[in-house]
Design a binder for these strands. Structure first.
Lengths: 160, 160
DNA sequence: CTTGAAAAATTTAAGAA
DNA sequence: TTCTTAAATTTTTCAAG
């Protein structure tokens, strides 16, 4: 079933390049990794089929498009049972404005990244997170004033 | 200089589609938004040139590629001067494993998302963040146990 | 696993509306 | 701004090494 861990230097290079330039043509990609276009394409497809690569996302400059409020929220649950964790995740994930949901160790149970049209809108989301049946003890909201570094891919050279 | 705010329904649709499917062909994109391929391409280029669209990123399944540790860290600075904030951001941004850096209001000054090969590696990064000349009072590290929702684009229909 | 060539499809620029 | 047309480029397949 599991045919992974066959990543050679070229596969890594493909992943690394596509990570930050997903619209590169296969032809140019093949040049940069030193393969023929057809071989390169085959490798890319294999990586995709193995679930290692994709989906492909376009970044958009939200601030230039519209006003919005980004909030990073820490969440503590009342009960630390498996069921409580699952129930909260399901609820949080169902809210479109919740962009990311991390379960963490330490003094909080979850970190959420939330984007809303304005503070009033965020308030509604905050209320939903505190709905009685979700088991939330506390939500601390931290409004983002400034983002000095945005995600642009993992540092594979440090990780692989 | 500034020729924005001319986004019509079609521009929004283009942004919305590309956000979650950056490798769609221009031909298919044009069908979905109801334009000819050339008109559609022209709009996409205009959005790119206006800085509203791009770069294009490929997601990769890091967990399937290798073991790694993701940590969400909250940071409090010693001094809350403008210079101190700038100095810290510059330092944090220079660390490849720091994927994102948010300046926030509330009980913390910054949130960082950090990915490291292992705990030992994270320790080094933590040490660097605490370097005496950076002005950090406290770093609280929260190891990610589980990510139940990953970023897949902004909910434009809620924001625009 | 690779190459290289051919066929299919797409991108892109130019001209007309 | 849009579309149509046509050329240039790219993707994709496939036979062969």
């Amino acid at each position: 079933m599991n045919d992974e861990q066959k990543l050679d230097r070229i596969d890594r290079k493909i992943l690394s390049i596509l990570q930050s330039n997903a619209r590169i043509s296969n032809q140019q990609l093949s040049e940069e990794v030193g393969l023929s276009p057809s071989s390169c394409l085959k490798r890319t497809r294999r990586l995709e089929d193995a679930g290692l690569l994709g989906p492909y996302l376009a970044s958009i400059n939200l601030d230039s498009l519209c006003r919005s409020v980004t909030v990073l929220a820490t969440v503590v649950l009342k009960d630390h049972t498996k069921e409580a964790f699952i129930a909260f995740q399901k609820h949080a994930n169902s809210i479109p404005e919740v962009l990311e949901c991390y379960m963490v160790s330490g003094s909080f149970d979850f970190f959420l990244r939330i984007v809303a049209a304005d503070m009033n809108s965020y308030n509604h989301i905050n209320d939903r997170l505190l709905d009685s049946d979700v088991g939330v003890l506390k939500v601390s909201s931290h409004v983002v004033l400034n983002q000095s570094k945005s995600f642009e891919g993992f540092p594979l050279e440090r990780l692989l």
